[in-house]
Structures are given as C-alpha cells and as structure tokens.
Design a protein around this nucleic acid. Structure first.
Lengths: 261, 261
DNA sequence: CGGCACATTGACGTGCATCAAACCGTGTGG
DNA sequence: CCACACGGTTTGATGCACGTCAATGTGCCG
C-alpha cells in the first residue's frame, strides 16, 4: 500500500466516524488524486493570504493553521494531525487570510479542489460529510476562543493537552490520550495558547510539579487525566466524536429530540 | 410581504453574495418553512449543550453565540445580525457545546433542519453554498482567536467595531460602516473581547479621546476609519466579501491561479 | 569540541483584573 | 412632579498574572 493510500484511508475513517457513507461514496474518497509533498519542520505549506487550488491532507507530522500579525508574531488557530484535511474549507473559500505551517517534519498530500468539489456535487452525502468535517474544525476553533478569552495560562495549556490527547488517540496517532508525542516547541505551544514561550515553560513546570503530567523530550505523559481535564474545564463534546451521533444523509429517524418545532 | 419573507430574502442575499444560485435554487431557499419567534433582550435562544432540530435565522436584532465556563462566565464567540443563519452549522452538528443568546430584543425564525437538509441534498449548489456560508463564520471565529491571543485591549475592541461596521453595512443593517447601532452593553462587549466590562469602558474612552470614534447611547460613529482599522490590524479579507470571488458550482473556469498543481 | 536550537531561570515592569463606590438615564409609583 | 429603584456607565485604588529582557543550562549534531 502506498503511503498516500494509507493517508487517504485515515481521512476516510475520520469522515466515517461522523458520517455514514455507502461503498460507492467511500470508493470516491479513496480514488481522490493527490501529490505527495515532504515538508521540513518550520516550513510554511501555505502562506497567509495565498489563493490555493489544492487542499492539504496531513499524512504524517504535526501541522498548524495560523494567523499572522503585522509585526510577524503568530497565533496558531488549530493543530492538525495525520488523517486531517487541514484546509478542507479551502474548497469553498480558496483565498483566506491564514497560513498553514509544518511544526514538525510532515508528509502532506495535495488534493485538487476540483476533485473534491466534483465528488461533493456527485454525492450529496459526501458534500454533507465535508461540511460536517469542516464544522468540527470550526467547533474546535470556537472552543479556543473561549479558552483564550476566559481561561488563565494553566487552564489554556491543560486544555490544549487534553484536546490533542483525545484527538491523537482517536486518530490512532497515539496509543492513548494519556501518552502521546507532541512535536512542537514551547514557543509554538505559546503561539497556540496566546502566551509567551517563557510563561508556557513555567506553566508546564507547574503542571509537572503538581503531578498532572510528565514529559521527556517531546513525549507527554498525562499522570492524572481527571485532574488535567478538571483544570482545563475540558468537555470533549465539542469534538463531536460521540459515535451515537453518527449520521446518515437522512437522520430524522435517528434522533428527533431537542427544543424546536 | 410577511416579516418572515423579508428575513428569508436577506438570508438569500447573503448566500448570493458569495455563491451563484439559479432561479430554482433561489426559490427553494425562499420556500423554506419557518416559525417566527420574538425574543426579549438577554434571553437565551439555545442553551449550551442543547440538541436542536431547527436553525435560527436572525430577522432583527443582535444575537451572539457563546461558550460558558463552569463558574458561569461567558465568552461570546461571534455576533449575528439580520440575515445571518446563526447556527446553520447545526444542520450537520445539532449537539454542540455553545449557546445562542439575544443581546438586544430580536426576531428569530426557526427553520427545521429537515427542510434545510432536504434542499441541500436535492441541490448540490445549495449544499456548497451552505458549506461556504458556514466557512465564513468559521473564518470570523478564527480571526477572533488571533485577536484574543495576540492583540491588546485597544486593538481587540477596535477590531470588533471594524468587523461589525463592515458586516452591518453589507447586510443593509447600517447605512455605513462608520455609523451603526451596536445594541450591546459594555459587559457583553467585554464577553466578546475577553476583557472585563471596566477595562472595555476605559478602552472605549481612550478610542474616543483619541478621536477614533464617538458614541451616543448605542450608536457608534467611527470618526477616523483608517486609524481604527490600523490599530485593529483590520483586513476585511477574512470576511470573504470580495465580489470577484463569487462562485458557481463549477468555478474552475473563473479562477485557476494559486500555488498548487 | 564547538555550535545551535531549545529549555530553564531570575529580575523587573505593566496591562488588565478586582473590588468598591459614585454617577447617570430611564422607568415606576406615590 | 418628586422619590426611588435599577441597569448601565464611569471613576479610583490596589494587586497579580503575565510580558519582557537577559543570562545560563542542556541535549543534539556535525
């Protein structure tokens, strides 16, 4: 199996974890054309403001979407791991202000917008699956707004660790949420949580001293998940990974509770 | 014309400003069923964590999506004005962690998910238009992350003012970006920019003293737009309102530049 | 062994939070 | 027509979380 096939398979699994697709639809995903791209650490994959005609599927490594200020300072807006199509939304919005950067060495698959759009038009279920997948990313970003706006340094760092633990476990990138490789420098982490590298350092040390985590090199080990989740006010609902909420194109039969109507 | 018709018309116009739809598709939007709902100021339209089966179209008033912390403190994640379907994404993600609240008195149309999903499945162009519309909201939220993480109080407040000015002008809610009604208290504004009401107050006073804005009651008048945009580092690109970027379902003929392939 | 990127530590400054009081406009009831 | 209450704005005093700057430590790689 080619590495590109395996990555597309992971992307399909990510979609299937939230949307039901029939065999033909699944095959359409797997048949997507792509170019493999090797990125060194700290290289920008997409520059801020660029108009792109491909989406980027992460096959390996840690990738971040970021916003850049006039003075060059960066704010990371989201992390992406293997199996994430990190700018799937670029299919419907190819010119945006953000950039995408490889934090670690990374393997990227470029998938043409035209191909993605073609299968979205041909298969309504795929269009909804893409929309839903984009919505998950948006939900994560929304949670980050709350994290940045209303939480202190300790909670912010804890929250990012919880999120990445869960997501890596889910994607099969890490064995468990309590032990994973976080291939980012403290400066990059600082760019994600809206702090300085110095303060992130002190915050991590405090989490270590309090027995919540340990870390050697880039490996993070969560020693006390409940406590970490507690200080982060972490509730995984926003990641939309509840298997019971998996959807077909006509979900009215599945869940009909709620307030309205 | 019923008020509900006029609101649906505004929603259609918002979609059309970014996506081309043929007459049948436009009619499908206008035929969407809905219930009118009057909300008093400070009432929650959707509670955090609720599962909904209707999307909320804002017909009048100012509405906010928010995240809530354990201690009850809130972080507003986005503002919505007339013509915005403020939780269109709920069609593909009906259970989410956030809530929606009316900041001012507001008129809301409840549109059943089932109806929205039905026309998205029937008309691929509508599915893409919905996805694109959601992406605009996501892009705004992403910009807020940068705003909260890397800008000081002055820039944050200025940025929100610029954004709302442009959006209200665009939606026909305000005559111009430099003069609009912002029906929110300073405390609500504080919840949006991640500050306290006291500090927002002092920040606004500074913007006034520096001659960037004036405000009487809830009316904001921008006296020096370039200066305000400058301090906010405001670049409207993220709002995706460039008319040249308006899209059909098969846009390959329209723009094919960019980096990839 | 030297160089380099990153982690760590310390001293000091500041932007914003916090708390508390006064002020102001508006609606309400006597 | 005044007394009052109430939500919102404004002001001041004080404290702390985090930023800034600068030095030192540490592991990795050539």
């Amino acid at each position: 199996m080619l590495p590109s096939d395996s990555a597309m398979q992971k992307f399909l699994e990510r979609l299937l974890s939230r949307s039901a697709l029939d065999p033909a639809e699944q095959q359409a995903i797997l048949n997507l054309p792509c170019n493999v791209l090797q990125m060194r650490a700290r290289r920008d994959i997409v520059s801020p403001g660029e108009t792109v005609s491909n989406a980027c599927l992460v096959a390996k490594g840690l990738v971040a979407r970021f916003d850049q200020m006039r003075d060059g300072r960066r704010q990371i807006v989201g992390f992406h791991i293997a199996g994430d199509m990190c700018d799937l939304h670029s299919v419907v919005a190819p010119t945006a202000g953000w950039g995408i950067s490889a934090l670690s060495g990374a393997t990227i698959l470029h998938v043409p917008h035209s191909a993605l759009r073609a299968i979205a038009v041909e298969f309504p279920a795929i269009a909804l699956a893409f929309w839903r997948d984009s919505t998950v990313d948006a939900s994560i970003i929304a949670k980050w707004v709350g994290n940045l706006g209303r939480q202190d340094a300790r909670a912010r760092v804890a929250h990012v660790l919880c999120e990445l633990g869960i997501r890596m476990e889910r994607a099969g990138v890490a064995a468990s949420r309590t032990c994973f490789v976080l291939d980012a420098t403290q400066e990059q982490l600082a760019d994600a949580v809206g702090l300085t590298a110095v303060h992130v350092n002190r915050t991590i040390q405090r989490l270590r001293r309090d027995g919540l985590i340990e870390s050697r090199g880039h490996t993070v080990e969560v020693k006390d998940w409940p406590a970490l989740a507690q200080t982060a006010e972490f509730d995984p609902a926003y990641l939309l990974l509840d298997d019971n909420a998996r959807w077909t194109t006509q979900p009215s039969a599945i869940r009909t509770h709620g307030s309205g109507q």
